[in-house]
Amino acid sequence: MKPRSNWTRRSINFMVMAVSTLSSFIGIAVLVWVLYEIIYRGIGAFNWDFFTKLPTPPGVEGGGLANAILGTVVITALATLIGVPIGLFAGVFLAEFGLRSKLSGPVRFVSNILMGTPSIIIGVFVYAMLVVTVRHFSGYAGAVALAIIMIPLVARTTEDMLNLVPDTLRESALALGVPRWKTTLDIVFKAAKKGLLTGSLLAVARVSGETAPLLFTALNSPYWPGWLNKPTGNLTVTIYNYAMSPYTDWQQMAWGASLLITLGVLFLTLCARFLLQEKK
């Protein structure tokens, strides 16, 4: 047996290191490039009108995306109201009550599949359920589509976060005579509060940038959202429409909308980061 040469070992080590460093640089470079383009081209669209005025036809000066901004906020908020509680309680079932149940395995499995389902399929599904049946697009349908995307995300993080709470805490609560539901809501939730909040925030951040499900449900509109029972303006579909249009002023608006969404998601992610770090 001949000993392996040191030279070979070193060169392989160098190669692996070089490839992984290069890969990470490529990844970061693309990200920086995208961010740079969005900021560079989007910042010019930001002005008072952008945030306060309704859109104007191409070529007409002024106008903004106030309706789409409001629409995105309202649809996302409604989706959060529907999706987070359902996801939260599904997570509670998986982590706390489903232990003795045969149902928890299938629930977890389906939830994983749902998490990996392309969002456009959710969009088409809600289109068939809530748009075709009432024969018009609506902000509600959009909120429901986003909520469906949120449920498995929230359920999964909730389960993980609740599993991090030590059983000794559950035991001491139960040993004091605290009923099971109260142990979960009063004590386990309190212990996992930051994790649950973080998970919900990340789910909101994730859906606030979704386009495909809204394209089939909320569609888009140049008017104020009103009661959401008609096509509802929103930023992502606006980006889709405006960016594809031949008008430079609309394209400019699309850049502005892109920047705004990016900033929103960044803000939510930073909030989540901050919460998690404070946790220790």
Binding site: P166, T168, L169, E171, S172, A173, L174, A175, L176, G177, V178, P179, I187, K190, A191, K193
Partner: peptide
Amino acid sequence: NLIDLRKRVGMIFQKPSPFPM
């Protein structure tokens, strides 16, 4: 009644586990 039982029979565990309050 478990709640009643556990009110009558208290327990202290190996690892101190104060509630998050």
